[in-house]
């Protein structure tokens, strides 16, 4: 089977006033339907790998493949937009559109994917029900709690049925109850066949998941464990 995602000898070096090596010589593959956690301390390179995957950053060296295509060969902003529509992304700071309602935030992901109004009217309430936010459909983000905002963010990432869901520290701003609520949701999403890539430094989360763990330290891959725990 062809890997869903592959990082091939990836390095990312930021050269501003000071040269910072964010990721160095990282190699690993993610198969379709996997649930994989990228773990490591702050600055280990987890977010950088995810940014490379959604073409928010370009690698200094190496190649990132998505569904067999080298992301560096994507031609212009149209193809990058198309890639991002195939990958649902959940961010630590939610990144919701503040002047849009919950419905509109989720619908936006379908609009940019070219879905018609009928599909949007049918699918958005369904996915909001899945994340338990049916009663907040007309609320604005500032009227929601942190956990609710993150669930909107997950709904938005899921609504156009992407093959991959990428979550960058999705529980970073949440209390323990909301944290495990979100993790249960990610597991549920994975069960229906979506590949999930979770970046986190939350030890408890990793230790309860019992899934594949890729550990990073100072930009290098230090362990790739198919049934891992938090080792750092």
């Amino acid at each position: 089977m062809e890997p869903h995602i592959a990082f091939e000898d990836i390095s990312k070096i930021y050269s501003n006033h000071v040269t910072t090596v964010a990721v160095e010589g990282v190699n690993f593959q993610i198969m379709p339907g996997e649930f994989i956690s990228l773990v490591g301390r702050s600055g280990a390179g987890k977010s950088t790998l995810l940014k490379l995957l959604i073409a928010e950053e370009r690698p200094t060296q190496g190649r990132v493949f998505f569904e067999g295509r080298d992301i560096a060969t994507l031609d212009g902003s149209q193809e990058i937009s198309s890639l991002r529509r195939k990958i649902g992304t959940v961010f630590q700071d939610f990144k919701l559109l503040s002047n849009k309602t919950v419905f509109e935030n989720v619908a936006f992901a379908m609009e940019v994917a070219g879905k018609n109004d009928e599909e949007i009217a049918e699918d958005v309430p369904q996915v909001l029900e899945l994340v338990g936010l049916s009663d907040k459909i007309n609320n604005f983000p500032h009227e929601l709690s942190g956990g609710e905002k993150q669930r909107v963010s997950i709904a938005r990432a899921l609504v156009h049925r992407p093959g991959v869901l990428v979550a960058d520290e999705p529980t970073g701003n949440l209390d323990p109850a909301n944290t495990f609520e979100i993790i249960r949701l990610l597991l549920k999403i994975n069960e229906i066949g979506t590949t999930v890539v979770l970046a986190t430094h939350n030890k408890e989360v990793i230790n309860t998941l019992d899934r594949r763990v890729v550990s990073l330290d100072k930009g290098r891959l230090v362990k790739d464990d198919p049934r891992g725990t938090f080792i750092l």
């Binding site: 959604i54 928010e56 902003s77 149209q78 198309s82 991002r84 992304t89 559109l97 936006f108 940019v112």
Partner: peptide, 12 residues
């Protein structure tokens, strides 16, 4: 918001 829309897949 502009950045978010781009990250969610909105074309320029």
């Amino acid at each position: 918001e502009i950045g978010i829309m781009r990250l969610v897949g909105g074309t320029p």
